[in-house]
Simulated scan of single mutants.
Amino acid sequence: MEKLIVLGTGNAQAIHCYNTCFAMQKGREYFLVDAGGGNGILSALEQAGIPLEHIHHIFITHAHNDHILGMVWMIRMIGASMNQGRYEGSLHIYCHKELEPVIRTLTTLTVGEKFYQHFDERMLFHIAADGDSKNILGDQVTFFDIRSVKEKQFAFSMNMERGTTLAFLGDEPCRDHLIPYVRETDWLLHEAFCLYRQKDIFHPYEKSHSTVKDACSLAESLSVKNLILWHTEDKDLSHRQQSYLLEGQQYYHGNLYVPDDQDIFLFPEETSHT
């Protein structure tokens, strides 16, 4: 991949930013990871200048509404593009076994048949098992079960053509069995529900989430080079980056980023951030 485009940075209850999801770009093609909680995915893609016709790979992590409901809109709009002869090739949808029927059911209950008629012909489901590797846009993507205590959830690691490595852990803390995917990785994408000093306000641990301190301490202990924190609360969005960096840099000494929606990270340059 050549760049990561942040489409959303908020948790499920965020209203001042979009729910956490992102796209990875290689050439003119994109790999979309999650789709947020509604049709906000369409405006996020438009703001990022990402045409639907150049999205042929989508991965959905789990069935929570802030990750999956935007997928209904992706299927509707790509289906419309297929019907109009503007979308070339097939849409490849990656998910774990239990998630496929959820995506199908949500779509068939809420979208006209003319949009989902392409299921199994040009909209193809690829079921990922724990440890499965797929070649997506020329890079090796290994999917894994994060062993969520809430809803079954998969995430992935990525080995890019140029040697850059990345680990995306979904929206829960890193458990011990995931450490081999994270140790000494170039880029770690990790949730941080709130500041550690706000834990009694936002109750991250009761929700199986982390604080900034937790995520940064983990990244420091595993020699991660670049750490991106997102899936946060949004109560003070204008000061989020400053306050999260201030706390995080006490515990992590690599390159720490707290992006806003529509921020871009370039690969393989470790410090390129626009």
Rank of each mutant, 00 (worst) to 15 (best):
Q241R: 15
F31Q: 02
L69R: 08
H96M: 11
H190D: 05
T232R: 15
S272K: 12
G10R: 11
H64C: 14
L69S: 03
K26D: 09
Q153R: 11
L124H: 13
Q198T: 09
S208L: 11
L69T: 04
Y244W: 13
R76A: 06
D261T: 07
A215D: 09
L237G: 10
R162T: 05
Y94H: 02
H203G: 10
T185H: 01
I58E: 01
Q262F: 08
Q241S: 12
H203M: 09
P180C: 00
F119P: 06
D171I: 02
H209L: 09
E269P: 01
L106S: 09
F156K: 00
Y257Q: 15
T164Y: 08
Y181T: 04
C21S: 10
I78L: 06
L237I: 11
R76F: 02
F144M: 00
F193Y: 14
N65H: 15
H92D: 07
E191N: 10
E100S: 12
I50W: 02
W73H: 09
A192F: 01
P173Q: 08
A215K: 06
A63K: 13
W187P: 01
H273C: 15
Q25R: 08
I93C: 12
H126R: 12
Y257F: 15
K235E: 14
Q13K: 14
G8D: 12
M1W: 06
L178H: 03
Y205Q: 14
Q153P: 00
H57R: 10
Q25E: 03
H203E: 14
Y244Q: 04
I60N: 09
R175N: 01
L256C: 08
H209N: 14
E270Y: 15
Q153E: 14
T211A: 11
C174F: 00
T142P: 05
L69M: 13
H56K: 11
L4C: 10
Y196N: 14
F168Q: 09
F125L: 07
H126T: 05
H57L: 05
V111G: 06
D263Y: 11
E46Q: 07
E53Q: 04
H54Y: 00
R162L: 08
I68E: 04
E121S: 08
E46F: 02
S221L: 05
